[in-house]
């Protein structure tokens, strides 16, 4: 799942999706946590017949945003808050192929003005993650390559036409991701990942819409695709993680938010963010991990300057031993 997501309809959502992505990445990491003996992190897969699952809560907020290139606030919305509760699962089909799922429920609200928030099930995503290669580097480390193909699909008919309060874009998406990472036994960890996401057209409830310099006489909106990448590094050992990362999303087309107008579903939404991830193994409860992920938007275009915190716990079941491990 990590892959598909960078794309979000509204400024405020971009954050939540981003964190979902990170989340997915970490998820993978989490699953590998029990494999202390080997190398870890993204390169490491959840091993066969294990299921790593949990619920994450994400709180995302911004009160400034970029209207095209213009950095501003807006008295009609104040701060936009997005709360997401996601069910997450990662199943080890084999040691080299993992299946991942995310099911998010999203609620939005504005602190000023009269606009009603939206709430509901957003887009579920499914991913197949495959480890392509693992190359030992010296005795103490390894470089791993992974590919992820993922797709996401709206679970409900929520409107994409109420940005920045819409739950999402209502676009079906397919994404291809490649990840390279290096982990040393002493915990040194480096990761680089990049994805391209194809987004299907979106249908509005109205017969025309204005974007990118013209009125389209159609209810169908072409969604530009999205490119993203992230680089990160830090420490990761014995179920404990402390990683910082930098990421960028680039929408490959789309118009700017017009002056004093609301965002539009196909806007060119770009951002760069810094983030951090902490995982802590819970004392005495084997296979249960506590997660905290933080993100801050450094710069953007047609997105909110959001700060995001995601937190949750993941537990790993092992079906090789005739059911749950514990």
């Amino acid at each position: 799942m990590g892959s598909g997501f960078k794309i979000v309809p509204d400024p405020k959502l971009s954050v939540s999706s981003l964190k979902l992505v990170l989340l997915a990445v970490m998820l993978t990491a989490a699953s590998s946590s029990e494999l202390h003996g080997q190398t870890t992190e993204d390169g490491i897969m959840l091993s066969k017949l294990k299921y790593c699952t949990g619920v994450f809560y994400t709180y995302d907020k911004w009160d400034h945003y970029w209207e095209g290139p213009l950095y501003r606030s807006n008295g009609n919305i104040g701060a936009i808050t997005t709360r997401t509760i996601s069910y997450i699962g990662n199943y080890g089909l084999t040691d080299h192929i993992n299946l991942l799922i995310t099911v998010p429920h999203v609620s939005t609200s504005a602190s000023q003005g009269v606009l009603h928030g939206q709430s509901g099930w957003q887009d579920s995503s499914f991913a197949v993650k495959a480890k392509l290669a693992s190359v030992p580097i010296g005795r103490m480390g390894a470089l791993r390559a992974i590919a992820v193909v993922s797709g996401s699909i709206p679970m409900t008919k929520y409107t994409p036409d109420d940005a920045p309060l819409s739950l999402g874009t209502q676009s079906k998406q397919i994404s291809g991701r490649g990840t390279l990472n290096y982990l040393r036994r002493n915990g040194v960890y480096l990761n680089g990942s990049s994805a391209y996401t194809w987004r299907g057209n979106v249908q509005l409830d109205r017969p025309s819409y204005y974007t990118n310099g013209q009125l389209y006489f159609s209810d169908e909106v072409a969604m530009p695709n999205v490119f993203d990448y992230s680089v990160g590094g830090g420490y990761r050992k014995n179920d404990t993680t402390l990683v910082v990362s930098y990421s960028q999303h680039q929408t490959r087309g789309g118009g700017d938010i017009r002056p004093q107008d609301a965002p539009f579903v196909s806007n060119r939404m770009n951002d760069s963010k810094i983030g951090g991830t902490i995982t802590i193994p819970l004392p005495r409860v084997h296979d249960l991990q506590y997660w905290v992920i933080l993100n801050h938007t450094l710069n953007g275009r047609n997105v909110g300057e959001s700060n995001t915190i995601t937190t949750g716990m993941l537990y790993t079941f092992d079906f090789r031993r005739n059911g749950s491990k514990r």
């Binding site: 797709g151 397919i174 194809w198």
Partner: peptide
Amino acid sequence: GLALVALAGCGKTIRS
């Protein structure tokens, strides 16, 4: 991925 993607990407052009 690319193949799947081609499916998702088609029909993007909207008459203005």
